[in-house]
Structure formats: C-alpha cells, structure tokens
Write a protein that binds this DNA or RNA. Structure first.
Lengths: 234, 234
DNA sequence: CAGTGGTCTAGACCACTGT
DNA sequence: CAGTGGTCTAGACCACTGT
C-alpha cells in the first residue's frame, strides 16, 4: 500500500498532465483537498510538497496553489541519465527511431575527442509521455560501440547502463556546453517541429575515471519542452 | 522572528560547517532533537528537510540521520559574475543601455521569489569587445535597490560587487534554469538581432547565506554569441 | 526486542492577499 | 473582513534496522 500522500500527489499530477487543470489554474484550497481526499491537511501538504519540488505546482501564501507551466527539467548535480531524471519527474520515458551505425563523417569535436579510432553514432529520439522532446546523438569509439544492438537499446533505454554492463565503463567526468540553436532540417524531422525553431542543445564530452573518452553527445530539445536546472552553492 | 524550524536548521548547519559534527557522524534522533530544541518533532523534521535537500545530511529509515560528505559532487560551477567570466575568456567586457527603475509589473517568478516588497528592475546590455551579447534584467527587492545609481553601475559593471559594498549582501546560493527562447520584440531591439532569433536564456534565483532572496535575473543571449560551459564530476 | 525515521491525525494560530 | 498557505503542537502507529 503506497502512502496516502503519494496517492494524492499521483492523482493531482494525473489531472494536471491530462490537461484537466491547465497551467495557471488555481487548485482547490488545502482545506478543500483534505475534505475531498478524506485525509488530513498535513497529508495534503506532503503531497503538494512533492508536486512543488517537481515544479508541477507553485504555491503563493495568501493567494493559493497554481498549476505551473509544464516542461521537462534536467536537474544537474550528478551524472544521471535522462531516463532516471524523467522517472523522478513522474514522466513516462520512451525512446524511438533508434539507429546504431558507423559514422564516416562525424563532427570535428567527436573526432578530436575520441582520437582516431573508427567512430560509431547511436541516434535516438527521446519521448516523455509519448511526446518527442530530445534528439540525442552519441558518438562512441569502436571498442565500446561494437557490442551495442539496436533492440537492446530500445529495451534498456539507458546507454550508460548498457555500457556499464558491456565494458565496465562508467562516466566519471564530463564537460557540457549549452547553446541555443535553430533547428536544422534533420532536427525538425526528428522532433516534429518547424525548421529554425529555437533548440536548447547540450554537447557533452564524457570520460571514465582514467580520463579515457567514453562518448561525445549532442542532445537537442525544443525550447518549450525542456529546460535545464542547475543549483549552485558557494 | 524567523520560524523555529529555520532557526533549528541554521543551528545544526552551523555545527556541521564548523566541523563539530564530522561527515558520517550520526546526529541525535529526531525525538532527542525535539527535546533539546524544545520544539515538536514535526518542527525538527521540517528543519531536517531543509538540510536534506541542501545535501547537508542524509536520512536512513531505521538507522538514523547522518552528516553528509561535504564533497565536490554537488558543488558544480561557482557564482562568478559575467565580468569575471568574460575577462577569463580574454574579451573586453562592456555595458550600455543601463536603466534602474521601479517595476510595476514584474514577472510572476520575481514577485514570488522577492515576496511582496516593491520590486525594482535593473536592466543592462552587456557587450564583449563592443558587441552586444547579453540582455540582462535583474529584479531586486526595495531594500537592496534603493542605493543603486545608474552611473555607478556603468562605472563598476558588477552588480554583485555593488551590492556587497552597499549592504553586505553576498550571493551564497542560486538556482539557474536554462531555456532556449525566441527573441521578443524588446529582446531584438536590445541585442540588435532579428525577432525570433534563438536565444539562450538563463533565469537565476539568488539568495544570501540565510536563504533570503537577493535577486531574480534573466540573461538572454543570441545562440551564436554565447554558450554555457559546465564541468561535472562524480 | 528497542530504536530509528516515515506517515498521519486533528486541531491551533500566524502571515499574507484581495474585497 | 474571509480565505489562503505557513508554522506548530502532541500525540499515534507503521516500516525498517540491528541486537
């Protein structure tokens, strides 16, 4: 039996995600929700805490609780896979249009980083609740890519998990560069958006604990479907 | 009067940061802490929630609450000003189109974060080697903004440096959200780019060491003139 | 088994908002 | 003023851990 506050949070989240409550809509007050769900106000507040930290709602003292603008956020802080991040946000992660192939003409950054070996490209389109939100291209060295089968990627969804099994390679260090770009013709087909739509593109160079390259990645997402969150501390 | 749970959290945090409790040390149980601080267990749990989400402690059901490793893993990047960042890149930082005024209709995020007081907006366009690359809008609470004069901002260039002098307010914590957006009409005038050009927009919520809000900022830069670099380590 | 954190109740009063 | 979310109390029982 799941705790009551989680069932309340799930129920509210489902209503919001199904569009029964639109962004900026005011939710019923905590007292009203307590009566509706037949639990104490404390339990309602626990449920709302969950939704607030997932950026599903926003609370304003004296005014009320409102449905937040929706979007997927990537919370930085460790080297988490997209799959993990999405699950934490309560979205159903999916994947489609997988291809694994030798890339005879990889981008210059990939060639430089992966140093000479034959280069493979793993391409995937990531979905959240069935909707495309990220075109992901990973360039890998020959040694790592050889064991990757397309159907496994579809089933497993996490490239990092697969690499860990295949070769004991774990990402230990990465540099990311974030840019705003206009969608190319290929991007627009993969993501189903008009050409030149603003995309948030993240380029990532990932190495193992010995500093050897694991992959060079480009992830491109439409600006209205993805945002990137960073917490900084001095 | 600050709420009791915040005072408890501050007290525990101070003990940990002063090294009186080393990493991996087990804290007194919640029941014991409630007696020590003479508050209810609920209030202790609120305080521990704060410290847990700040990664200061970790809780394990059935075992106890432990001081977290104070390592690098969650401290990613630092709170550097644009001026510092540009200088490191060997560009000549500049500033133009400064305005400081009360904002009667600030964005909802600013209102929520700065909580109620009259809100000021400091707007600037940042240049690198004379070329506009960033439109920066900072929303500040009344108490902080009152002392800011436009000519000082032009001369000093760093809002953080100015705030530190005026009020001893230093940024200690921030959350950033990065999005790709299409340039609005105002953006296109400020930056000299066509409307709907892809912009990299960074929203930042900055607090001092007591968690009080200092500013909410939006920085918007054309995708071809700015990129954001992050180094991650596990 | 005792001790821990996790969940939950049924209240109370406070701070803030808008009428 | 009424209505909202924010804080707080003093309990209770549950789930998990280690002896």
């Amino acid at each position: 039996m799941r705790p009551a506050y989680q069932r309340v949070a799930d129920s509210l989240r489902a209503d919001i995600e199904a569009g029964r409550w639109q962004p900026a809509t005011k939710l019923p007050s905590e007292h009203t929700l307590a009566q509706t769900f037949e639990v104490s106000r404390t339990t309602i507040r626990q449920a709302l805490d969950v939704l607030e930290s997932a950026n599903v709602i926003r609370r304003q003292q004296g005014k009320g609780t409102f449905v937040a603008a929706q979007g997927v956020s990537h919370v930085l802080g460790d080297l988490k896979s997209f799959t993990d991040t999405l699950r934490e946000l309560g979205k159903q992660p999916g994947i489609r249009d997988v291809s694994v192939a030798i890339d005879d003409d990889p981008p210059a950054d990939a060639t430089t980083f992966l140093r000479g070996s034959r280069i493979w490209c793993v391409e995937r389109v990531r979905t959240a609740d069935g909707r495309a939100f990220c075109r992901m291209q990973s360039w890998l060295p020959d040694a790592l890519a050889a064991g990757i089968a397309e159907d496994e990627l579809l089933a497993r969804q996490s490239l990092y998990a697969l690499l860990a099994d295949l070769s004991d390679e774990r990402p230990a260090e990465a540099t990311e560069v974030i840019r705003a770009e206009a969608a190319s013709a290929e991007d627009s087909v993969a993501l189903g958006v008009p050409k030149d739509t603003p995309l948030l593109s993240i380029y990532r160079w990932t190495s193992n604990h010995r500093g050897a390259p694991i992959e060079f990645v480009r992830s491109a997402s439409p600006g209205d479907r993805y945002e990137y969150v960073i917490r900084l501390k001095q």
